[in-house]
């Protein structure tokens, strides 16, 4: 009896140690963060639009230059509760003006804050983790040129079990995977560039792919970009694979045109949360839009469920 209690205690201690290690934040290597202060702001602006940072960190309904004021406040409803995007403008008091390039890279690529806690994946670092360090460095150079906004952060409104950031380490260990999603078997540079843009900074899969574990898990790679219920509640997010029930009838030029102008070939217009994404995409160079379209035509078609 005594022995079995002892064994239980030992087991519990072991489990706690394993949990602690499993949930410990993993930071980027020095060799990566050392490059963060050598970025180019002009190139970084393109990374900024591809990454869609303004969609969450600018004020709701911001248009034009207002999208460069990243005071936060956008609310994201999820199954775990409501997340409120923080201030990431260069304001030293309420924003991230005191951050180093290494702090920034660890947040974007690893979801780890400067004080070593985990960010929630409502911040789509699960995609940004595939970004090239030089792109993150360029983005950081651009972020520092933006106007400071003084606006205090609001707390997230989460149900209790989700309030514990440490547990996110376990979530990351289970669901965060920085490998390429699709094995394309091609060396076409346009398709590969498109893969980088879509699976990395563009984070298209965060909306267009359903999640495992009743919506709490990671992207369901077996139904990559095949759409699913809209996490914001109403309706669905469309399937954008080349299946005949999805974008099969769209040419690559139709897809690139939609991202640039917001109109489909039938002159229906973009709607819902895609409007913001499309307005960001409209800033991209034509060859990057063509690359995204080439990738969307090259991925495996997934039929409607």
């Amino acid at each position: 009896m005594k022995k079995s209690i002892l064994a239980l205690v030992v087991l519990a201690v072991l489990a706690a140690i394993v949990f602690w290690f499993l949930t410990a934040p993993v930071r980027l290597d020095e060799s990566v963060t050392a490059q963060m202060d050598a970025g180019d702001a002009a190139r970084g602006e393109m990374v900024f639009w591809t990454g869609g940072c303004a969609s969450c960190h600018a004020a709701d309904g911001a248009k034009g230059d207002e999208k460069l004021k990243l005071g936060g406040g956008h609310r994201l409803p999820t199954p775990a509760g409501i997340f409120v995007a923080p201030n990431i403008s260069p304001d030293p008091e309420t924003g991230i003006g005191n951050w180093t390039g290494a702090d920034f890279a660890n947040a974007v690529m690893k979801g780890v804050s400067p004080n070593g806690s985990h960010f929630y994946p409502a911040f789509p670092y699960t995609s940004y983790t595939r970004m090239k360090p030089e792109d993150v460095a360029d983005l950081w150079a651009f972020m520092k040129t933006l106007p400071p906004v003084s606006r205090a952060n609001e707390a997230n409104e989460l149900a209790l079990p989700f309030k514990l950031r440490r547990g996110l380490g376990l979530w990351k260990a289970m669901f965060m995977d920085s490998s390429p999603v699709v094995d394309l078997q091609t060396d076409d540079p346009a398709v590969l560039r498109g893969q980088y843009l879509v699976e990395g900074p563009g984070h298209c899969g965060e909306c267009h792919t359903s999640r495992t574990f009743f919506g709490f898990g990671g992207s369901d790679r077996s139904r990559w970009l095949a759409g699913g219920p809209n996490p914001e509640g109403k309706g669905v997010i469309p399937n954008i694979t080349p299946d005949p029930t999805a974008l099969g009838s769209w040419s690559a030029a139709d897809i690139a045109g939609y991202l640039k102008t917001g109109f489909t070939p039938e002159f229906d217009s973009v709607g819902g949360s895609m409007v913001d994404v499309q307005e960001n995409m409209a800033h991209l160079k034509d060859d990057d839009l063509a690359a995204i379209a080439a990738y969307l035509k090259a991925i495996p078609p997934v039929p409607k469920q």
């Binding site: 309706g235 669905v236 469309p238 217009s269 973009v270 709607g271 819902g272 949360s273 913001d276």
Partner: peptide, 14 residues
């Protein structure tokens, strides 16, 4: 006008 209205008042239902 198209996307301003479609952004708020329209939703794809699959």
């Amino acid at each position: 006008n198209c996307k301003d209205c479609h952004e708020k008042y329209r939703v794809k239902k699959g």
